[in-house]
Design a protein around this nucleic acid. Structure first.
Length: 739
RNA sequence: GCCGCUGUAGCUCAGUGGUAGAGCGCACCCUUGGUAAGGGUGAGGUCACGGGUUCAAAUCCCGUCAGCGGCUCCA
């Protein structure tokens, strides 16, 4: 006698087990018609289920419906459609390419779905096949075949899958049954689930036929699905990529086919259009057309050349944050881009991350001498990577923990000294702190620097401004007494908030990176980590925005609070970051004198509200689609003389603007005004000042603001200059000059 | 780093074995025009780089480099 609780609190009693479809029908015919699945809570948390699923105990049930025309589809509905569309696409691909394509894993994602598959030797799938595949997808949807679920005892199902010769499905089934030996930490896009596991004990495996089992296409799958293919509004294949089986780079390489589905063809169309539009916002495209930055093969991969226009944007951002830092009592320092290898052995960067740093720089004479002595490459490496006895003893003594492997320690006279391009700024700042005595009265010491760092990123990871090999952090290190940590974290978070609110960036998420309980890469004591993690969580809670806690995302020296945004393609990038570090002070033996006249260890906070200037500017270009607010615009006003006859007055206008520290130029070309307007509009310049004989006579300018179809009319030059100046000073996000 | 795709003028791209092309941009000339492209002329190319096949290669093959999309990484 199941009692069903509906979302509005009503309850319904059924004399016998019922399907979710029957429950929908009992509520209303319209609902039954619109239903495509249901969200069910049997007491263990809500889960999505098929309409055919039988409920034989008390439960909360919310029917998931396909949206009415014009209504936005709910996440659950899209999930069901996309999960189902993955099956339809896989069937279509097998129809087009061949039945011998081995399917591996095909989950829904945030914006669609993908299916990983293994193509048999000699077979190829390329975008040339998309048209045929999409046609077949449309046919299958039109055929409106039911998604038919059936179950088989696990051992029987496994035998069958083995006979079909698809090792991926066999593997899926084994994992679903819980017999797999290794733990599957699924790809981030697709959280680990047990494909085909029908119950928690997985005594049986479930399959879905698109139509009639045994006759139509089918796939091992745990579900849930929409009732029939026709209930997938519209679906299409989008792109091809590659992936590793289980995300393991030593495992098989698979072909990943991305697709998406929407409730209606109109929604799908709108999505595809939006994707096209997004590409136009790509910072690499805008960066080239607006000449904001340049990457040159001859300079090197992932190395940014800031052109004059981009440099203005970056410089304005730096001045903006510098003013905020001054308010918070920071002091500025300058340090070199390179440091002794020993420094990074002390800080721990070299042993922990040597593979993601540029190779050490060793003096030429030393190398020549070693060559003459017949030193092998392997020997050289060992002697560079080794740690001196003195250094190892010091580090171990201070931290009390074994941070240097014994085989790393070699006699000082065998050691080859070198330098490194710095991967982080903190060691230099630590040495500045250590260079003089500090009283508790002077704490915290806040050292800031726009510090450029270099990291050896894998070539396949490089991406425009967002992932580079040399970048400048708006870095600072706060050396605090322990009881100052919470307030200082708050101060850092407020910087990030000022940046985001000034620039009108609302679409970000906050991530608290904690240590992975099984991870071995971390340095420092458990007690220190516990304290640091508690401080970060406390600060995140006070932020007033939702945040996620992510084990394994911590830095090797401490936990952190990150601000993450998405680019136009939907990829996530970490921008601002605040990291608590209880380790660096130990490693560098930093101290301050407390009120008790005894030395105390400071706690160090690393923070970079922009993160990296390169990445931030990349994201910012996309945020504004290149149309920067006036204060950030490389060119703020373009003066457009009607003809040569007005050149003299135009020059006077430019001069007046420049005198007020407004970035202005004049378009002297012999084009007509129409053309000059078009060019200035394409360059996304905030204001145009059209000047002709009439303006020269009255001392006015005819103003046109970006994004406004018509000109705003004439206004006195002086008031225009004043208005623009006021807008810049306010760092206004909007163009506000009006006559 | 791995898989796939791509690489032709400053930019966007056409050219599929037989003389290297277009539009935009650039230079110059005409035009002196009041708000999203007036007209003309011209310069500009080791067809990414290196090898191979061929009478002949931008085009076919191999390798390298770089870019793009993923994956894997990411202090």
């Amino acid at each position: 006698m199941p009692t069903i609780t509906l979302p509005n609190g009503d309850t319904k009693q059924f004399p016998a087990p019922v399907t979710l479809g029957e429950i929908a029908a009992s509520i209303g015919a319209g609902l039954a018609k619109a239903a495509i699945g249901a969200r069910v809570d049997l007491g263990a948390g809500p889960e999505l289920r098929d309409l055919s699923s039988v409920i034989d105990q008390d439960a909360s049930v919310a029917i998931v419906t396909a949206p009415r025309p014009g209504q936005a589809a709910a996440a659950d509905a899209l999930f069901l459609m996309r999960h189902s569309a993955a099956h339809v696409m896989a069937e279509a691909i097998q129809d087009v390419i061949g039945k011998d394509v081995l399917l591996a894993y095909g989950p829904p994602t945030d914006t669609g779905f993908f299916y990983d598959m293994h193509l048999p030797e000699g077979k190829k799938l390329s975008s040339d096949h998309f048209e045929a595949i999409n046609r077949r997808i449309a046919e299958i949807i039109k055929e409106d075949r039911p998604f038919t679920r059936y179950e088989q005892p696990a051992d029987q199902a496994l035998t069958r899958l083995k006979s079909e010769g698809n090792k991926y499905k066999v593997d899926n089934a084994e994992r679903a049954m819980g017999v797999a030996s290794s733990v599957y930490r699924g790809p981030r896009a697709a959280p680990a689930e047990s494909p085909g596991a029908s119950g928690r004990e997985a005594a049986s495996l479930s399959f879905y036929a698109t139509g009639e089992p045994g006759r139509n296409w089918e796939d091992l799958c745990r579900g849930p699905h929409v009732p029939s293919t026709g209930r997938i509004g519209a679906a299409c294949v989008l792109s091809l990529a590659s992936s590793y089986w289980h995300g393991d780079e030593t495992s098989d390489r698979l072909t990943r086919v991305y697709g998406t589905a929407f409730a209606t063809p109109a929604d799908l169309d709108a999505y595809l259009k939006q994707r096209e539009e997004a590409v136009k916002r790509d910072h690499r495209v805008i960066g080239r057309s607006l000449r904001l930055f340049h990457i040159d093969e001859a300079v090197g991969q992932g190395l940014i050349l800031w052109t004059p226009k981009g440099s203005i944007v970056r410089k304005e951002l730096q001045s903006f944050i510098a003013a905020e830092l001054k308010k918070q009592g920071y002091t500025e320092v300058f340090t070199p881009h390179i440091g002794s290898l020993d420094l990074y052995k002390t800080s721990g960067h070299f042993p922990y991350y040597k593979d993601s740093q540029f190779a050490p720089i060793v003096e030429r004479q030393t190398l020549e001498r070693l060559c003459e002595q017949g030193c092998s490459c392997a020997e050289l490496m060992a002697r560079i990577e080794g740690v001196s006895e003195r250094l190892a003893a010091g580090i171990n003594q201070r931290t009390g923990s074994q941070t240097i492997a014994p085989d790393r320690v070699i006699p000082d006279d065998r050691l080859v000294e070198g330098f490194m391009l710095r991967p982080m700024n903190c060691p230099h700042h630590a040495k500045i702190f250590a260079s003089g005595p500090h009283s508790y009265r002077d704490m915290p010491v806040r050292l800031s620097e726009f510090g450029t760092v270099y990291r050896w990123e894998q070539s396949g990871e490089l991406n425009g401004l967002t992932r580079v090999r040399g970048f400048t952090q708006d870095d600072a290190h706060l050396f605090c007494a322990e009881d100052q940590v919470p307030a200082e974290i708050q101060g850092c978070l407020s910087l990030v908030k000022v940046i985001f609110s000034t620039l009108g960036m609302k679409d970000y998420r906050v991530r608290v990176g904690l240590r992975d309980p099984d991870g071995a890469k971390y340095t420092g004591s458990k007690e220190a980590w516990d304290k640091a993690e508690a401080a970060c969580l406390e600060a995140a809670r006070s932020l007033g925005v939702p945040f996620s806690q992510e084990p394994g995302e911590a830095a090797f020296y401490g936990p952190k609070i990150d601000f993450v945004v998405k680019d136009v393609i939907g990829r996530e990038w970490q921008l601002g970051t605040v990291q608590v570090d209880y380790n660096m002070a130990n490693r560098f033996d930093l101290s301050y004198v407390g009120p008790d006249n005894r030395p105390h260890r400071p706690v160090v906070i690393h923070r970079a509200p922009f993160g990296s200037m390169e990445r931030f500017c990349g994201v910012l270009i996309e945020h504004f689609a290149g149309a920067f607010p006036t204060w950030l615009s490389p060119e703020q006003v373009r003066v457009l003389p009607i003809s040569d006859k007005s050149n003299e007055y135009a020059a006077a206008v430019v001069q007046a603007l420049r005198a007020a520290d407004v970035r202005a130029t004049c378009d002297h070309s012999n084009d007509r005004v129409q053309a000059k307007v078009k060019v200035a509009a394409d360059e996304k310049i905030p204001y145009m000042a059209v000047v002709g004989p009439r303006d020269a006579e009255s001392g006015s300018v005819s103003v046109r603001a970006r994004g406004v179809e018509k000109d705003l009319g004439a206004m006195p030059l002086e008031s225009f200059v004043r208005a623009v100046r006021r807008e810049i000073d306010a760092r206004s996000a909007e163009l506000g000059v009006r006559p």
